[in-house]
């Protein structure tokens, strides 16, 4: 009898919050202690399940922000209006609380240090979270190929990982859509095709491209990037919705 390929089975694991850090007025990073965590790849996410005392449960996916190979399990959560899970995780949860996680999940929107090519990252809002995992993985590995970030965000207060983004210096460009920091020449507004061209690696350098953000932002960026000559086969996208379920 032929031996069937053995697929790793995914189940819910109990996890303890060991640290909660504020990232902005509306987002926090939560560090989780998960027994037997198998490690993750940059770009992956976990499902988080919360259970109330009466048995009510709610499940939401959150991207991992920590570097692959770091041994750390950190997610960054931004509150969504009326979001019962995000509101609890950002505003109420404290170290010592328990949640359940399932993952790591996703084997498509991932970047590994074994990829020798340049990398262009394009983030809209909290879409920067899985891309930060890639930047941290890239940085801690001392990867020789360039990795650049274009980060569209509503206003300076909403910038996640502001210190780390600043340390990236010329490898990161932050563009504001609603309010610009004082003293900047660029008026706030949506990222234009010309700005994408100016602040990203040229298509001729054949970078791997990762785009993450709200669906409308991702759709717009895919159109711009393919228009600039990027091979659609080399672009990977992750959309997150303004969840409409109450």
């Amino acid at each position: 009898m032929a031996r069937a390929a053995t697929l790793p089975r995914l189940t819910w694991q109990s996890a303890t919050l060991t640290q909660v850090r504020r990232e902005s007025s509306t987002a926090s990073t939560l560090r989780l202690d998960v027994a037997g965590w198998p490690g993750h790849r940059a770009g992956q996410h976990v499902d988080v399940r919360l259970t109330a005392a009466d048995g009510y449960t709610a499940v939401r996916p959150y991207s991992l922000a920590s570097a692959a190979g770091s041994g750390l399990v950190e997610i960054t959560v931004a509150t969504t209006p009326g979001g019962e899970v995000s509101t609890y995780l950002v505003n109420d949860a404290v170290a010592g609380n328990h949640v359940e996680v399932r993952g790591p999940l996703g084997s498509w929107f991932v970047w590994d240090v074994s990829d020798p090519d340049p990398v262009q990252l394009v983030a809209g809002g909290s879409g920067v979270v899985p891309l930060m995992s890639m930047l941290r993985t890239h940085g801690s590995a001392g990867h020789p190929a360039p990795m650049r970030l274009l980060y569209s965000v509503s206003d300076p207060e909403q910038v996640l990982y502001a210190d780390e983004v600043e340390q990236l210096a010329h490898a990161a460009t932050v563009l504001h859509t609603r309010h610009s920091p004082p003293g900047t020449a660029r008026p706030p507004g949506r990222v234009t095709p010309a700005e994408v061209e100016e602040h990203t690696l040229p298509a001729t350098s054949r970078p791997s491209v990762f785009v993450c953000g709200p669906t409308g932002f991702v759709e717009a960026m895919l159109t711009v990037l393919t228009g600039l000559g990027h091979d659609p086969e080399r672009i990977r996208a992750e959309r997150y919705g303004e969840r409409s379920s109450p």
Partner: peptide, 10 residues
């Protein structure tokens, strides 16, 4: 299932 302390949901 493991209860998340302080979580009540909607």
């Amino acid at each position: 299932p493991l209860v998340s302390e302080g979580f009540s949901g909607r």
